[in-house]
Design a protein around this nucleic acid. Structure first.
Length: 451
RNA sequence: GUGGUUGUAGUUCAGUUGGUUAGAACGCCGGAUUGUGGUUCCGGAGGUCGUGGGUUCAAAUCCCAUCAUCCACCCCA
């Protein structure tokens, strides 16, 4: 009995027409990365759990896909003391699928530090996995396109990454807004209101300001155990308004007593001051409610929103000062952005932004009349391909209707028909499938027309 | 982890207060058309109604369980 096959929740098959569009996104992103001097690397799909655990916060650990050890797992389990939770887990599971590309990259830098020179600019386009509940725009397996530079704390790289973001989405024709914030400002806020250690709670709560409103944010902060005094002090910050310059001016007053906070304001001001020279055309908005859950960010943080389509952020990133420190390499600062290819795909599909001819793979198909004609056609096919034209021949001498249907369904724009007549006159019948017209030409002319 | 939605042909979906042999569109196959697709006309194949149990003379339809799916929350690309 054949059972209906299926794939795991939150994963997808990609058919050729979809794959061609996905590659269009990947190729565009890759070409921009290379234009700015970034080099490709890859890392394994699985990492040791010791590399991954504890880098993404509590939530992140739960969302890690863990891989059961192979071999006699049960035998090993019996040998460890079940009271020791860590040993017990290691006896069954010591590898996991990567959750993002940034942490594996930090591990890569530490392990390969002798082989690379700093600042090290790399890009990496690979799938990542999260054991999340899937929903719209959320998958359990999806691609990230990461571009990072480590080994420099120059703010020029923050600017460069915004240029890259701007260039990619301009090429893809997607309207976006870059939301910008700085962890140092958030730390400064926590410091000023006297709750330094609660920065994560505070930022997670104010991140929801747009969604749940001021009242609920305050309630959440109370629930998390913040003092009323601190919450009162926070109000002017939540109420900040105006354009980027005005907001920064107000922030400077509020954060005057916090050295870290002032440093953050200074950094943001510097970035804004360079937008014009860097020729960044998209909107960049200072957004103090932007927190980002990943707890390794220390400076600038970015999130990219599509202007005309409702979906979570389509890219995000930031500065991390000491990610490699966890793996034993101190004093290496990094900054990077991750493009969510799958969400970008959803946006482009939703807004109908893919170029129309994007899914044409084969440009010309040769009709197959029989062995004699096939033997005659093969050298011509080679000639076509040598001229840079994607060409194929139908495999059997099937009915014309079937052969033409195949070409039609595959969206092949030209068909070449070669029978006795054509072979004798040294010509081919070239049919334009869209227009329905047909003409007898030499193979050279055909190449000219198609190419 | 919490709440909800939907499971019927390859796909998208109809299916009346429970009542003969479960339908349509698209797709697929064949023919009208043995050197011409996409449009048109004719014909055909294809379904243990997600799975397991229960109620009933009778279940795609009602009840329970289970699995899957999509959506929202949390969080995130």
């Amino acid at each position: 009995m054949a059972q209906k096959p299926s794939i795991p929740k939150g994963t997808r098959d990609f058919t050729p027409d979809i794959m061609v569009k996905r590659n269009y996104i990947f190729d565009t992103i890759k070409s921009v990365f290379q234009k700015y001097g970034y080099s490709p690397i890859e890392t394994p799909a699985m990492e040791n759990l010791t590399t991954l655990m504890g880098k993404y916060g509590e939530e992140g650990d739960k969302l890690l896909f863990k891989i059961q050890n192979s071999g006699e797992v049960f035998e090993k389990m019996k040998k460890v003391n079940p009271q020791n939770a860590l040993d017990f887990q290691r006896s069954t599971t010591e590898k996991g699928l990567r959750y993002d590309l940034t942490v594996p990259f930090a591990r890569f830098v530490v392990q390969n530090q002798n082989a690379i020179s700093f600042p090290f600019k790399r890009y990496q386009i690979q799938p990542v996995w999260r054991a999340d509940r899937p929903q719209k725009g959320r998958y359990r397996e999806f691609y990230q396109c990461d571009v990072d530079v480590v080994g420099s704390d120059s703010l020029l790289y923050e600017v460069e990454l915004m240029q890259i973001v701007d260039a990619v989405f301009t090429k893809l024709n997607v309207g976006i807004t870059i939301k910008l914030n700085n962890r140092k400002i958030l730390a400064g806020i926590a410091e000023v209101i006297g709750e330094e250690k609660r920065m994560v709670d505070i930022t997670v709560a104010i991140d929801k300001l747009d969604k749940i409103g001021l009242e609920n944010v305050n309630k959440e902060l109370t629930d998390k155990g913040l003092s009323q005094e601190a919450i009162d002090k926070l109000q002017p910050i939540l109420a900040l308004s105006g354009n980027n310059v005005e907001k920064l001016a107000q922030l400077k007053e509020i954060l005057a007593s916090s050295e870290t906070g002032m440093k953050g304001v200074e950094e943001v001001e510097f970035l804004f001051s360079l937008i014009e020279e860097a020729a960044i055309k998209c909107t960049i908005k200072l957004d103090l409610t932007l927190a980002r859950g990943l707890n390794y960010y220390t400076g600038a943080i970015f999130e990219i929103q599509a202007n005309d389509y409702k979906i979570g952020s389509i890219s995000g990133g930031g500065r991390y000062d000491n990610l490699t420190g966890i793996f034993g390499l101190k004093g290496i600062s990094g900054v990077g952005v991750s493009f969510g290819a799958d969400r970008i795909f959803d946006v482009m599909e939703g807004l109908d932004l893919f170029p129309k001819d994007a899914n044409v793979v084969t440009q010309v198909m040769f009709v197959n009349f029989g062995e004699k004609e096939m033997r005659y056609s093969l050298p011509l096919l080679t000639q076509m391909r040598a001229a840079g034209i994607n060409a194929e021949i139908y495999p059997d001498a099937a009915k014309m209707k079937k052969q033409f249907s195949y070409a039609n369904n595959k969206g092949i724009p030209y068909v070449i028909i070669i029978g006795d007549d054509e072979m004798q006159n040294n010509t081919v019948a070239l049919k334009n499938m869209e227009a329905g017209t047909q003409e007898k030409v030499s193979i050279e002319e055909a190449i000219k027309i198609i190419g």
